[in-house]
Amino acid sequence: LVRYRTISKIPQITLNFVDLKGDPFLASPTSDREIIAPKIKERTHNVTEKVTQVLSLGADVLPEYKLQAPRIHRWTILHYSPFKAVWDWLILLLVIYTAVFTPYSAAFLLKETEEGPPATECGYACQPLAVVDLIVDIMFIVDILINFRTTYVNANEEVVSHPGRIAVHYFKGWFLIDMVAAIPFDLLIFGSGSEELIGLLKTARLLRLVRVARKLDRYSEYGAAVLFLLMCTFALIAHWLACIWYAIGNMEQPHMDSRIGWLHNLGDQIGKPYNSSGLGGPSIKDKYVTALYFTFSSLTSVGFGNVSPNTNSEKIFSICVMLIGSLMYASIFGNVSAIIQRLYSGTARYHTQMLRVREFIRFHQIPNPLRQRLEEYFQHAWSYTNGIDMNAVLKGFPECLQADICLHLNRSLLQHCKPFRGATKGCLRALAMKFKTTHAPPGDTLVHAGDLLTALYFISRGSIEILRGDVVVAILGKNDIFGEPLNLYARPGKSNGDVRALTYCDLHKIHR
């Protein structure tokens, strides 16, 4: 019993810090008490220290592992850092350059016999395009090294910054494609005289377009951006097909006994025919423009016929181009109408809503002055909100995010209106959640004399007048207030005048 009563005193000691020596009952000389009392004092002292730490809000209350900052290894790049964003855009520009100039170089340097010394005699450094290609190869190699040090988000939505895990993730992902696209074939085969082989191998750079397509997928929600990307894709495919079309004609031209190829026909049409040795002929500019003209006309199913396939190889390629053109029509131009419709969806919704308003007016036989006010209010409210119901949009977000959005939407009023000066951010967040926005066209009466005042109004834009009878008592403008002081009276009061809008007004109100 003594032991039980001794232990039962522990909660009292913990909360009230009572010393055991003052209790005459606990001072009985028993061996059990002498053993338990020192333990009680020690526990009391420890609990006292913990309570003191909690009340003082000291940093040592938290466990040590929670006080440590997340460790980022040296030379690790955050995937959302500004440097990584700028670097990704730079790589994107280099990939676009590669997609345009690599097929052009591979096709127009394929057994090209233009006048001038061969590239091997001039030297590697004197070729501007080769120098640019070398810079692109170096940048792609540097990009691989950067990807080995860039964080990523795993399946659990955690940012991984450990170098080993980053390397394994990159090896399992895009490393092989990036490595093949970054191989400097110019340096590996330079001086061997195989410019045709170098041009063909350099087309491996186009593998990076797969990554670019995935990154550009984030802009699919913007109709104008999608339309622009589709047109660029169409032009890029036409450019690639033009390079292939020229390569076919250029390879067949020296081996044909009869002059029936499209390059021969082009030379005869523009007065620059090929001679018996295969030299001469149109310039590279004429060849490229004509090839691009043929691919565009074939892809769009126009086909004027002034550039036509004559050999079997050219006919087979033309059939493939027609098939590609039909697929592009289905996948690209078939979506253009939907994209344009999405661009004008706001206008369509406006006309639909206006039609419903006019049908309501016609069905209920609203008189002319009231009908005009109804239409003007709808037009003004639509121009202010673009038909978007803010309350319906915010309803799907958590309250903390709703408060931040409301604070942002009402920031101008909260910053410049005098009653809100000096208020804490928590108070402003709470008030912003209570605001209701209303609009009024010129001549609209917001409050009639004798109406119950259940709200306090803040003028965000425009001006109003307060009338008693036919006498203008006051004219209020931006950041002015009218209405009933909230919670100042037990019952809502009545208006002693009319409140009429002089201009288009936007008002925020808080109800009782």
Rank of each mutant, 00 (worst) to 15 (best):
D268L: 14
E121G: 15
L207I: 14
I166W: 01
C400D: 04
F360D: 01
Q341G: 10
G426P: 08
H73C: 05
L241C: 05
I135W: 03
L266S: 01
I366M: 04
D404I: 01
A432E: 03
K395W: 03
A238V: 03
Q68N: 14
W382M: 07
P184Q: 03
L279S: 13
I183F: 09
I189M: 12
M179F: 12
F140R: 01
P184C: 01
W245G: 01
E359S: 08
V210G: 11
N306D: 01
V226W: 09
L67N: 07
Y104T: 01
D404R: 02
G305A: 14
P369C: 04
P367E: 15
L323S: 03
T76A: 05
P309N: 01
T150K: 01
W87R: 01
Q341E: 06
S277D: 06
S192T: 08
F228G: 11
F294M: 03
I166E: 01
L266Q: 01
R74A: 08
H364F: 04
I138N: 03
K272S: 01
R71C: 09
P309C: 01
S194C: 14
K418L: 09
D217K: 10
F420C: 01
I198D: 02
R218W: 05
R71L: 15
T290M: 01
K434S: 04
G426E: 08
F171C: 14
I366N: 01
P419I: 15
L230G: 04
M322S: 02
I366S: 01
C427P: 05
Y344K: 03
M390C: 10
L236D: 01
V95N: 01
R358Y: 03
N391S: 08
K202P: 01
E375Y: 04
I146G: 01
R205A: 04
T203V: 11
L93W: 01
A430S: 11
V336G: 03
C122S: 01
Y222S: 05
L266D: 01
Q365R: 11
I270K: 01
F175C: 04
Q415S: 10
G303H: 03
L230I: 10
L428M: 06
N306M: 01
R214T: 04
R208N: 08
G116W: 04
M328F: 09
Q353K: 04
